Simulated scan of single mutants.
Amino acid sequence: MKRVLGIVASPRNLGNSEILAKAAMEATGADNQLELIRLTDLDIRPCKACYACLPKDKPCRIEDDLSFLLEKIWLADAIVLAAPAYSLGPNSRIKAFQDRFLSVENKHEQYGGKACITITTYGVSGWSGYTEAALNLTAKLFNWRLVDSESFLGANPASVLEDPANLKRAQQMGKALFAPGYQRTPRANECPVCWSDILRYDGKNVICPFCGTKGEIGMEGDEVKLKFFPEEDYRWSKAGIQQHLDFLNDKKQEFLAKRSLYKELQNPYRKIGNWLTPEQK
């Protein structure tokens, strides 16, 4: 028996994200234990950028529901991450979760390696935006093994089920979670490392803004093609994670050494303007 955790970032009860997540989870096998967490029900507070969590033996100082979520992730064998597109990006609870990855980066072995699929739903054709890429980024941030991802069109609750192909695709993704040797079909012009179709061009190279993989634009016959050159120490590799941790620890030590200087630089700006807050009810 496997434990499959569905993380749904939608406030809608039985909305499209929840339905497809459940369909994928059910397809993993009749004997599996299926558990669900609705991110909008959790108290996930903003990261304070205090760097207190950088040591492996130090948890995040913020007392909220992140520890509950991380415990359930640690216990899971596979994860189904689902969210709707809001204003061309994922529901904001995804971003709140992403921002707290710093507290687990140095402990990625505890939470990493979980097989994961991501499910994006969006309501208007052409308006999925960067949502799927953001969900895949979440999987990479927490070092999950990304198996497959897909975006599904459907605005009204359960409307994704009006197209039988959507249910079939979700079930295929669920079965893939524990299918040895499953290979997702690559899409044209996407980053081969993190599957992002959001790319930057610096005048010479095409660069994935998520993992840093570089490529070049070329021609194959009459067609423009992108060719990528993945490196072993890309941003979410073990070496890449260590490089980021080394940088953060260096910055923490620099802050401690220059704390007095930084306070002096801040002083001229302490009394500029008036902060506005709502009246207490």
Rank of each mutant, 00 (worst) to 15 (best):
D250C: 00
G212S: 04
C47L: 07
P268V: 00
F247R: 04
N166L: 02
Y201A: 02
N189D: 15
P46F: 06
R200T: 05
Q266W: 07
R145D: 13
Q253L: 11
C208H: 09
D65M: 03
L39D: 04
L265Q: 12
L135H: 07
R3H: 13
N156H: 11
L81G: 03
S128C: 02
D31K: 14
A49T: 03
C116Q: 04
F210E: 08
V124M: 13
I44C: 10
A49G: 14
Y111I: 14
I73M: 11
V147L: 08
D31V: 02
E132P: 00
P230S: 08
A49P: 03
R235C: 01
G123L: 03
P46H: 11
P268Y: 02
T185E: 14
P55F: 07
K48R: 14
A21S: 14
E232S: 12
L34P: 08
G6P: 03
E162C: 00
K48T: 13
F142E: 10
E71V: 02
D222I: 00
E223T: 01
K58M: 09
E190A: 07
K140R: 10
L88F: 15
K22V: 09
E109C: 00
A96Q: 10
F68T: 02
V80T: 10
Q98M: 09
G273K: 13
D99R: 01
F178H: 12
P278Q: 10
K2Y: 13
P59L: 06
D250T: 04
P192E: 12
L20P: 09
A78K: 05
L153G: 08
R187M: 10
R61Y: 06
A9Y: 11
F255M: 09
F101L: 00
Y122Q: 03
S17H: 09
S149F: 04
F255V: 06
Y201I: 00
Y182S: 01
L261D: 12
L167E: 15
D233L: 00
S67N: 08
L226M: 07
Y269S: 05
D31N: 15
S103A: 15
P157M: 07
Q110M: 12
G112S: 04
L256P: 01
I217A: 11
Y86C: 04
N267R: 08
K48M: 10
R235A: 12
S87Y: 14
R38A: 06
G113Y: 07
T120N: 13
Y130W: 07
L153C: 03
K175D: 15
I44Y: 10
G218C: 03
S67E: 15
Y86W: 15
K252N: 07
T138M: 04
W144M: 09
L161C: 05
V193Q: 08
P59W: 09
T40C: 13
A24R: 12
L81D: 06
G273D: 14
P186A: 01
I117D: 11
D197A: 07
